[in-house]
Design a protein around this nucleic acid. Sequence first.
DNA 1: TACGTTTTTATGTATGCACATATTGATGAG
DNA 2: CTCATCAATATGTGCATACATAAAAACGTA
Lengths: 235, 235
Amino acid sequence: MTIASPNTWQGVQDEVLRRIRERVWKPGDLIPNEADLAAEFGCARATVNRALRELAEQGLVERRRKSGTRVALHPVGRAVIEIPVIRTEIEAAGQRYDYRLLLREVTPPPGRVTYTLGLPDATRVLHLLAVHLADGVPFVLEDRWINLAAVPQADEADFSVKSANEWLLETVPVVRGDLAISALPCPPDAARVLELTEGTPLLALDRSTWGPDAPITHVRLWHMPGHRLLTQIAG
Amino acid sequence: MTIASPNTWQGVQDEVLRRIRERVWKPGDLIPNEADLAAEFGCARATVNRALRELAEQGLVERRRKSGTRVALHPVGRAVIEIPVIRTEIEAAGQRYDYRLLLREVTPPPGRVTYTLGLPDATRVLHLLAVHLADGVPFVLEDRWINLAAVPQADEADFSVKSANEWLLETVPVVRGDLAISALPCPPDAARVLELTEGTPLLALDRSTWGPDAPITHVRLWHMPGHRLLTQIAG
DNA sequence: TACGTTTTTATGTATGCACATATTGATGAG
DNA sequence: CTCATCAATATGTGCATACATAAAAACGTA
């Protein structure tokens, strides 16, 4: 019996996936090389290559030159979190978006900011505090620090209308960033703004972004109690 | 002046990225079609295609047949969370891994489990409670529910040695899953096990996984206070 | 003007070929 | 036996070409 030849990289991928899931090829096993698979499926090697490359990117197989392709032992699950602009996030939920700037000052940043961004101590940094509201109710508190050495224009921008996030996205090229998620007790000032009792568990997202040469900004988002970050697991 | 032709899809991608970042092609702009770019760079259209396809996957450009390729307006940041096996995670940090099964019972699951998994009410479900320790100190508390209708073998498996997570990974084919991240107050029973005061903010990860036909398992991981989930932002 | 139909066009994908590159394994000198 | 060297091999990538497919644009008819 021959396999119904799919002749498309999706088809090849599906068939390979099937064999992995049904343990025809067990975790750790070496699978046939591209040329052989191409022959079996009656397609070009490039087609098999694309199918396997994508599986390797998903972490389901591991590929090494000359060694060949083997089924991953512990397929590491990957969850992809989409980080939309907050306004988009709220409007997508069918709610009215509102934004209020609470504080704007130029102060020396706290240690955790200089540390994660790798800033020299003397840097001038713009500090913003703002709430994003959904249907008039606080949704998230934004505590942002912008490196004025990297983004001097920020000093004259009007952040009372457009949120700093959107302004930065349109103004500064971002090269890389990272995100840290943690559960923290609601601090006193946030408690006042969000009308919560101090110490309530809140989900805190710390995002740092860098431009081509210098750190741009660090922001901590305090989400309201009960907020859930939802993601799909690939693989 | 002609562009130093890269002749490799990476090179093409870099050049396209540069033009997007330096606003040569502004957000919302239509960029030249593949054929033209191939001509400009002196390479094959397939090479340009691969470069652009990857950028589209990252969300930096949007492609539609016939319309062409345009620079994304609000490049949605994507953070990828790697979900390793906990043992691997701890050992990778250079710490000694330890695992203790605290509870094993067959009970009707609570509402949040039946709801997220979409289980009928009468399903027999195996409930496990276990701690994972790093250097002898509690690292995470695992509260797991396994659908015995989908994984009957689990009833006889010995989860006191190997963690359920690893056992399931090796035993059951997983097709899809999702993950919800939230900050919750430490409940009484967790407080007892982890030696914490009740109500301490903890990071809770709720993971659900499905097989080809039926829901497999739901697990809530209670991380110790101060735990941070670290990720890189792509794009 | 308002409609269905056809053409045009940009991306999507498959193929066959060639060569690049990493890595294993065999070979041979010392 | 040890170490350097070299050949064999599986994946990685590029190119030219062809055809598939989605969708915008042009066209023609009522």
